[in-house]
Design a protein around this nucleic acid. Sequence first.
DNA 1: CTGTTAGCGCATTCAG
DNA 2: CTGAATGCGCTAACAG
Lengths: 347, 347
Amino acid sequence: MQPEKEVTIYDIAKALNISPATVSRGLKDHSAISKNTRKRIFEAAQAMGYRFNSFASNLRRQKTNTIGVIVPRLNSAFMSDAIAGMEKVLNEAGYNLIISQSLEDTGKEEKNAVTMFNSRVDGLIVSLSYNTRAIPHFEQFIRRGIPLIFFDRIYEDSECPSIVINNYEAAYGITTHLIGEGCKRIVHITGNESGNVYRQRFEGYRDALKDGGIEWDKQCLIVNTLTSGDGEHAAEAILKMKRRPDGIFVANDNCAVSCMLSLKRQGIKVPDDIAIAGFNNDPISRVAEPNLTTIDYKGYEMGEVAAKTLIDRLNGTSGVPITNSLILKHEIIVRDSSLKNSRTKHR
Amino acid sequence: MQPEKEVTIYDIAKALNISPATVSRGLKDHSAISKNTRKRIFEAAQAMGYRFNSFASNLRRQKTNTIGVIVPRLNSAFMSDAIAGMEKVLNEAGYNLIISQSLEDTGKEEKNAVTMFNSRVDGLIVSLSYNTRAIPHFEQFIRRGIPLIFFDRIYEDSECPSIVINNYEAAYGITTHLIGEGCKRIVHITGNESGNVYRQRFEGYRDALKDGGIEWDKQCLIVNTLTSGDGEHAAEAILKMKRRPDGIFVANDNCAVSCMLSLKRQGIKVPDDIAIAGFNNDPISRVAEPNLTTIDYKGYEMGEVAAKTLIDRLNGTSGVPITNSLILKHEIIVRDSSLKNSRTKHR
DNA sequence: CTGTTAGCGCATTCAG
DNA sequence: CTGAATGCGCTAACAG
């Protein structure tokens, strides 16, 4: 089968005996084209199988109507929600999305950034990879005036708008909850402390201990990459501790669940021997037994807000200062994995 | 801060006193440019902050180096694996990806197809949405000679290459396993039977029953959309059945797990009262208690293969027939949720 | 090995 | 309300 030839506005113009300029305007509903001509143009375009050439348009207009998104991974409940939220808002505003994942690798993140740059995205929404500590690869965007928005895993030293939750407060709250349930010795399993997310969760945990009258013990901090494998290793480490903890606060649900299951396999009772709390309200937290106490925050909303903030910047009357950072709400979801007291009370 | 002006190959040419054509060639490592000139060009480009304009290039070459991907959803373990596999292969081959999700809505799938078409993707990889039964929205690609590859949820009546597993065989195998564990009455929970995936799983189940000497009973088929909500409803329905089943084969893990948890909440023992098996080997299947027996198939590999098949088509010496469809391997993963016999034996 | 030339399809200024 | 003319930046003949 022969590939059909592309139809251009010139072809339409010729067919209708008008000029290409008129066709171009008619196609984009320019007000200065008569209703009738416009109608004829649309009909001809339809009939001839015309398709808009966005490359020519982009080249001409020096704009792409494309937004780049770089995230650590797509395959988490939080992230795919966030992306769904962005897609909705940006599509409605007439933008397309190019999505790529850094797979928690700063090198790949840099390459992704180059691709986005060369694709001349009109704006960029980023959640940083695990180890990224500096953002020279994003500075070219800032220099060229291309709006850059961070969400969740943000770069704190930049002027860019950032959409986050209050990780400190969430961690403080959930740790306080564990203390309220009677935990005296609480281990914290978390990720690289140099990023905003895990550092703040750690700080919230630490301060909650202090304010709860529990002395902070270095032994109680386990830092890894929060994979499920890490959860199992952490469980081993915990079982080997001289002073065994009676509570664990893990900075993500995946790791929390695998840690919990490992502990259970070794005969530990959860929450009686050790109470456990996670972070993210991943669906997995509702499947694990006992169900996992965790922090809920809305990925979809975060995506929407990030996208809206970006659109503000794109349309923004420059000079007018726009809200720089937004802190969205979170919620502590208390489930069985941490309910020491309530168990005693109820049974 | 002033946005910097764009540097073009003309600027580089002027700076080096050579022609733009030479710069263009040098930049893409054309063999007919001396090593020395090439080096000077790269250095100048670097120094001047040049960035390649893919729109101009695309416009000129009538190619985009972009591949479109349309899938039902991104947020399943299988799908994000598949996409990771594609991304790897296609990136290495110099292609970019535009990804979009139909959210199981044929209407959105159609819109996505239009976007891809207007973005002039060089090729398209598709897994169909739940209800899609006809593909007029993809015919324009075929007409224009743009390679189209289906994977997993394929369109069976098309000439397009398809990458799948043998759903029939997998379902047959896992049902036979349930029968081997002593199940006499096995319910099948599945999705819309008009798509290849769920129809074949149903047929495999039905034939396994027949070959296992179990009479096929219409009552035992529950069709829904396989969400976790559907799993709960299915559990209710099962509990209301006059003849209660002793086995359930669910066409996806998510639904299987929520069904299993609902049954457990109602006091059913799994696997003793009812054995359960799922499909997909989703991480959730290893978290649920008991661990879920399921079918493993490799999303990553499927993505890689789909991408490679596409690349073959793109480079393909036309006329040479290329393998049209590929059937990848699957594996039955037996876990506790279906081990009636073994339990008896071991304890 | 390098240069000249032309045009990909569209949007926009300016002139009617 | 419409048309003529120009160029966005790059690539690929073709010609040295």
